[in-house]
Each structure stands twice: as structure tokens, then as C-alpha cells.
């Protein structure tokens, strides 16, 4: 037997377990979701009647679904923009600047990421609680009573309260990602720039940002996926999607496991297509020539 053939068999054998697992736990269920979306079906075990595009037709006239998609887009856009800016800013400060307590801040920023989303939902329930909550109590203490709000009870505010919590938990993770690529930028680039008279801001836009661009692109996809997933869990654990805070995955969950399995899977298909398309678009529009050092 020639060596090449043996090698390819070895590669195949090594890959097989992963491929089998992906197939069983990802591919088959996904196909099943797409299939079920075309049926009227109450739960896992009930009879299914073929309904064509019925579920989708209902879905596109369903105000609650439209609200859920609008909220999801709002969450993705705001969380991505704000977290990205803050994370890059903090990462730059923590890698490029020298000040006391640098390591302390690294730890502080990263802590929310270690906590499970269940704990975060618990923390923010305590923060936003109207009478005894930390936020309203603090505002009262410093004499800003007029700013006190029903943070999780007012439909005009609730989405921003949730977004704030999700940004708080996301910053640390992305900050560490950006820091890792920033530390690998050679110091001599900055030295040369400062000899040429470039200030800190200019250095950031001319050196740091272009050199971590590839990293930022990757994280943008993470933003889309993790916001869709985490907002679901946070909403499920706090407002349960009421008061105008419905998000797509939560709406799917609440339908699929409340006697409307087929309809829930149709929502799932829409979310699948949406997140795929959004990631692809983001990937395309952020394409730049990769700079190397």
C-alpha cells in the first residue's frame, strides 16, 4: 500500500467521529426543523398534517413575530456597536497605556464573562427591581429621584435595560479577544510612528485598528450569534418576552413547547435564515485587504 493512501485513510478515520457527531446532532435536526415547519403539529408525538406554507403565511402577518424580529435586530445592532467601541477602547487602554491597577481592571472587565447568563439575569433583576433595586436606590441617594424608572416594567425602557445588561456581560470577552491581537503588534511600529510625530489617536487609527481588523471581522459574526442566543436566555429568565421585549428565539421557544410545534419550527427556520444571511452580509461588507506586519 502506498503511503499517500494510508495517510488519507488515517485522516478519514480521524475525522469520522466528528463528522458523524455533527451529522447526527446538527445536520439531521436542522433538516427536521425545516421539514416540520411545513406541517401542523402540536408536539413531538402528535400527528402531523402537511400544511404547505401555512405557518409562514401566518407568521408574516403575526405582529408579535414582527415585533420579535425588530427587537432582535435592535439588539444585534446596538449591542454590536456599543460593545465593539467600548471593548476596543478598553483593550487599547489596557495594552498601550501604563497605569496603576491595570491587571485589576482586566480581571474586573472579564468577570461577567465567567458568570452564567442565569446569574447575570439574577444580578440585573436585583439591580432593576423598582423599589429595593440598586439602581433606583442609588439614584435616590444622589438626589436624582426624577431619573428613577420601572426599568423592567415600562415598555418604553425595557429593551434598553436588557441591552445594557447584555453589553455589560459581553465587553470583557471581546476586550480579551482584541487585547490578544493588539499585544502581538510589534512595538517598533508604534516607536517609528511616534518618531514621525503621530499622536496616540493617530497611532490607533493608522496602526492598531488596521492590524486587528481581521480579528474584528471574526468577532462581528460572534456578536450576531451570541446576541441572538443570549438575549433569548436573558429575556426568558426576566421578562419572558412580555411588555414589548419579545425576541425571536424566545417566541420560537414559547410556541414550540406550548402545543404549536410546527409553527415554532417555522419561526426557527426564519431565525436560521436571518442569522445566516446577516453573518454573510457582515462578512462581505467588512472585507478589506489583510494587512500584515
Amino acid at each position: 500500500m502506498n503511503k499517500k493512501k494510508a495517510q488519507s485513510r488515517f485522516v478519514f478515520a480521524c475525522l469520522a467521529p466528528a463528522v458523524i457527531l455533527v451529522f447526527i446532532f446538527m445536520v439531521i435536526p436542522t433538516i427536521d426543523v425545516f421539514k416540520t415547519a411545513f406541517f401542523k403539529k402540536s408536539n413531538f408525538v402528535s400527528e402531523a398534517t402537511f400544511a404547505g406554507f401555512f405557518n409562514f403565511k401566518v407568521l408574516f402577518n403575526d405582529m408579535r413575530f414582527i415585533e420579535a424580529m425588530q427587537n432582535t435586530i435592535l439588539y444585534v445592532v446596538l449591542i454590536t456597536i456599543i460593545t465593539l467601541i467600548l471593548a476596543v477602547l478598553f483593550a487599547t487602554l489596557l495594552t498601550r497605556e501604563n497605569f496603576i491597577g491595570k491587571n485589576f481592571f482586566r480581571v474586573i472587565f472579564y468577570i461577567p464573562n465567567i458568570l452564567s447568563i442565569v446569574v447575570i439575569a439574577g444580578i440585573f433583576s436585583a439591580i432593576y427591581q423598582p423599589t429595593n433595586g440598586i439602581l433606583n436606590t442609588f439614584l435616590g441617594m444622589i438626589g436624582l429621584d426624577f431619573l428613577q424608572q420601572q426599568w423592567m416594567g415600562n415598555p418604553d425602557i425595557i429593551n434598553y435595560s436588557i441591552i445594557a445588561a447584555l453589553i455589560w456581560q459581553a465587553i470583557g470577552y471581546y476586550m480579551v479577544m482584541y487585547m490578544s491581537s493588539m499585544t502581538s503588534i510589534p512595538e517598533n511600529l508604534y516607536e517609528a510612528a511616534s518618531l514621525e510625530g503621530a499622536g496616540k489617536v493617530k497611532q490607533f487609527f493608522m496602526i492598531t485598528l488596521p492590524l486587528i481588523w481581521d480579528n474584528i471581522r471574526t468577532t462581528l459574526t460572534f456578536f450576531v450569534i451570541s446576541t441572538i442566543n443570549l438575549s433569548f436566555m436573558f429575556v426568558q429568565l426576566t421578562s419572558e418576552g412580555n411588555l414589548g421585549s419579545e425576541v425571536a428565539l424566545n417566541y420560537m421557544y414559547n410556541n414550540a413547547f406550548a402545543g404549536k410545534y410546527g409553527f415554532g419550527m417555522a419561526i426557527g427556520v426564519c431565525i436560521f435564515v436571518f442569522s445566516f444571511a446577516l453573518s454573510a452580509i457582515i462578512n462581505k461588507v467588512t472585507e478589506r485587504e489583510v494587512l500584515q506586519y
Binding site: 427591581q129 423598582p130 420601572q150 423592567m152 416594567g153 426576566t238 419572558e240 412580555n242 411588555l243
Partner: peptide, 8 residues
């Protein structure tokens, strides 16, 4: 009431 009613 509403805040509490919609919290877990």
C-alpha cells in the same frame, strides 16, 4: 405591579 409580575 407590572415590573414584578413580569420578573421571574
Amino acid at each position: 405591579t407590572v415590573s414584578n409580575a413580569n420578573a421571574k
